[in-house]
């Protein structure tokens, strides 16, 4: 039963073309290790350098957004201050393209702002995204933002197609946010 159960679980991931999928508490150390494995995997398969860089960059920005903004956090002190953020990152290939999907819980009050930003990026073409990126690079950081504005533009800039995203309400205070990027 045990092997059958988990084989089925793995088969679902395999048929979706998943290279790896991480769900749980993310730290900077986990981000580094996953990113390293991802780069090695792509290099071993002779993926060209520009594509490797794009996929890696989108992965890092997505994972760091989870670390910064996930509403599902564990905080405490175990001799040093520790903050862990829960979320999900999945990377795979589908019809010759890489996809990177991230998901995490966010507060309902933060949904409109995030939706506006992502819709704004969806409407832009490549040149507009590039110009928008440069404009944000020159600006002083926004309050409370911790760098997300530019992170989302970086993701849009590396993506081959417009970013896909969606929200699934959990209760009145929280929603499950999911974003998919293709390269």
């Amino acid at each position: 039963m045990l092997a059958k159960d988990y084989r089925e679980f793995k088969t679902i991931l395999d048929t979706r073309g998943v290279i790896f999928s991480f769900s749980g508490y993310l730290s900077e150390g986990i981000l580094y290790s996953l990113g390293d494995a991802l780069r090695h995997k792509m290099a071993l398969e002779d993926t060209d350098l520009t594509t490797i860089k794009k996929v890696f960059s989108v992965f890092i920005e997505q994972a760091q957004n989870i670390i910064r903004y996930s509403a599902e956090k564990l905080r405490g002190n175990i001799g040093k201050a520790v903050e862990l953020s829960s979320g999900m990152v999945t990377i795979g290939t589908d019809r010759g393209k890489f996809f990177i999907v991230c998901a995490n819980i966010i507060l309902t009050e933060d949904v409109p702002r995030l939706r506006d930003r992502l819709q704004q990026l969806q409407r832009m073409d490549k040149d507009e995204i590039k110009a928008h990126y440069k404009e944000k690079l020159r600006e002083p950081p926004e309050e409370r933002s911790r760098g997300a504005t530019i992170g989302l533009i970086e993701i849009a800039r590396r993506a081959s197609d417009p970013i896909e995203f969606d929200f699934d309400p959990i209760d009145e205070h929280q929603q499950f946010f999911c974003m998919k990027v293709s390269i």
């Binding site: 890696f56 760091q64 530019i150």
Partner: peptide, 16 residues
């Protein structure tokens, strides 16, 4: 070789 977007912002400040 690679830097993330918040490092890009810091590099921009450095160039300014």
């Amino acid at each position: 070789i690679y830097f993330n977007s918040s490092s890009a912002k810091a590099l921009m400040n450095m160039f300014q």
